[in-house]
Design a protein around this nucleic acid. Structure first.
Length: 566
DNA sequence: GCCGTTTTCGGCCCGACTGTTTTCAGTCG
């Protein structure tokens, strides 16, 4: 964990404590905001500190800057110890229980001495909680359900799992609605999704809501009103919220429910300065509605051009839109080929010919076949002889299929000493080379990747951090150093599109962009059904503000700015 | 706690739903 993360977590804990104490909510949100800024900040806060520019970061003022400096110099923040004094350890963790907020937690602590989850469960069982002023049967019941959800541990799920669920729901509800679209972090293509937000408009609100809460895969209905309903679906215990709005508010609602929260708060502040009010129903001047049907009109009322959902994170996009400096983000139609696909020669399912035929349906000009190299025995890695046979087959297919070019790539293992799995003589015969770590995740990874980057035949480093969203932490690697080094040697870093990887992710892409790094999109497909994962990588690239020129796959093969041309 | 040529003080996004209130507080997003 780097310093940015460490400080962010302390700020979050301070916010929890202040909330528990019932202190000024604006001060609390200042801590939350500072925490978010630090977590997402593309540079190491220590470097900013050395430049003396901490307070230049918007959202970080004098107070926060002092605390950050205090942490960097002493490893502690006094304020933190002040605010958690007298609060029993572990108590604030209970704030994660749904339906149990700071007010109620404070109440049960002060009136009933609840200090832990066990205490809380006890006062529910023995009837003490329900007797407290402001409590009641239903509130207690809700907290009880909250405890159940808390124990199940509701984790964010990968975008790749959430998207099919959303598509299924939308498909079911389509016939009852005029318009229905996903919003929230899913529309922003965030790598993981907490809740799913869906927005609809139609003739009969009640019917839409009713159909929604009675869908066969709904497990539990959490809330149901005239305009909104929340349910838990059977898959992954995911919460899905549906909002139904009038047609002339659809754009405003889409904008509002797409978020992010920080992006919206800033927009609303700007609206206020102009004497306007934004809500999910529209933009209002006094009582008069001046926008609402179309999303871009919401932005127009603030003198902004429409901002793509993927970058609505309050990371400078509003300022960029104001000065007309929004980048023209890469589009799906810019992509001319996939640069990381496995064939039957190693651990892929289909033949090269089959892959080529499928790739054509994506409108690709080329496809990069990258099988595993010999050390990856489990993955059917190819020895020199096998590689030769594969390359000969590619040559043959290229003669027969003219509409798409098959590129001879390989995903070559970086060995324990940083050398590659094939000799330079072998590497030279390939169209391009991807190098990657597949073993020794904790052994000198940074140095090994740097050595691979130094090899003149390496064009791309695959899944540079090795993290898996399903749980694996990733290699022990200094990604900042790799970005710096790759940029220096003109080696591209991969944006691996596989839903469990999405590696590099948005934050690391932003870091790379700042260093003029080049990127390569690769699905890492092991069967042709996975070629569609390219859209997740594009989502990640867009979240990282990338334009097409920064991505190898948008170039014609002959013009592709690979490290060197062969 | 942050921020600012309409403010260095006094603002700070806005609304739905729920349950407990008899006009509103708490939680959530």
């Amino acid at each position: 964990m780097n310093k940015n993360q460490e400080i962010a977590e302390i700020f979050d804990k301070i916010a929890d404590a202040l909330e528990f104490k019932g202190e000024d909510s604006f001060r609390i949100s200042a801590y939350r905001k500072a925490s978010r800024i630090l977590k997402e900040y593309p540079e190491d806060i220590e470097d900013i500190y050395k430049k003396g520019e901490i307070q230049k970061i918007p959202g970080i003022g004098k107070g926060m800057a002092e605390k950050i400096v205090e942490y960097l110099e002493t490893g502690k923040i006094k304020k933190y110890y002040e605010v958690i004094e007298e609060i029993p350890e572990g108590l604030l963790q209970l704030l994660e229980i749904p339906n149990l907020g700071p007010k109620t937690l404070n109440l049960v602590y002060n009136k009933l001495g609840v200090k832990s989850l066990e205490d809380l469960e006890r006062v529910i069982e023995n009837g003490q909680l329900v007797k407290l002023f402001g409590m009641g049967e239903k509130k207690v019941e809700n907290i009880k359900r909250g405890i159940e959800l808390y124990k199940q541990g509701k984790e964010r799920i990968p975008l790749g799992i959430a998207l099919p669920i959303v598509e299924e729901i939308i498909n079911e509800l389509k016939k009852y609605t005029k318009k229905i679209e996903p919003a929230g972090s899913l529309r922003r293509m965030k790598e993981t999704i907490g809740d799913i937000d869906i927005l609809a408009t139609g003739e009969n609100n009640n019917e839409i809501i009713e159909k929604f809460v009675t869908l066969p895969f709904v497990k539990e209905v959490l809330a149901k009103g005239d305009t909104k309903a929340s349910v838990i679906v059977k898959t992954n215990n995911l919460q899905v919220d549906l909002r139904v709005v009038p047609p002339d508010s659809f754009g405003a609602a889409l904008q509002y429910f797409t978020g992010s929260k920080a992006h919206n708060i800033k927009l609303r502040g700007m609206a206020k300065d102009k004497g306007l009010k934004i809500s999910e129903y529209g933009v209002f001047k006094g009582n008069k509605k001046i926008a609402g049907e179309k999303e871009e009109d919401i932005y127009k009322t603030l003198d902004l051009i429409w901002i793509p959902p993927e970058i609505r994170e309050d990371r400078g996009e509003i300022e960029a839109a104001l000065s007309n400096k929004l980048p023209s983000l890469v589009e799906e139609s810019d992509i001319k080929g996939d640069l990381h696909v496995h064939s039957k020669y190693s651990d892929g399912v289909e033949t090269i010919q089959e892959i080529a035929i499928k790739a054509k349906t994506f409108g690709y000009d080329y496809i990069g076949i990258c099988d595993h190299s010999k050390t990856s025995k489990i993955a059917g890695g190819l020895d020199e002889e096998g590689l030769k046979r594969r390359n000969e087959e590619i040559d043959k297919i290229n003669e027969n299929i003219k509409e798409i070019r098959i590129l001879k790539g390989m995903e070559v293992d970086i060995l324990a000493d940083g050398s590659l799995d094939y000799s330079d003589k072998i590497l030279e015969q390939l169209d391009f080379v991807i190098a990657s770590i597949h073993q020794g995740f904790k052994k000198n990874v940074t140095e090994r990747i740097k050595k691979a980057i130094e090899n003149p035949y390496v064009d791309i480093i695959a899944h540079p951090t090795g993290r898996l969203l399903s749980g694996r932490e990733g290699y022990e690697v200094d990604i900042d150093e790799i970005i710096e080094y790759a940029s220096k040697y003109n080696v591209a870093l991969e944006i691996n599109c596989y839903p469990d990887r999405l590696d590099l992710n948005d934050i690391n892409i932003l870091k790379g962009k700042a260093k003029n790094l080049k990127f390569a999109l690769g699905t890492d497909a092991h069967n042709i059904g996975m070629l569609k994962y390219i859209k997740f990588g594009i989502g990640m690239a867009r979240r990282g503000w990338l334009t097409k020129n920064e991505i190898l796959n948008t170039y014609d093969w002959k013009e592709m700015p690979l490290r060197r041309k062969r």
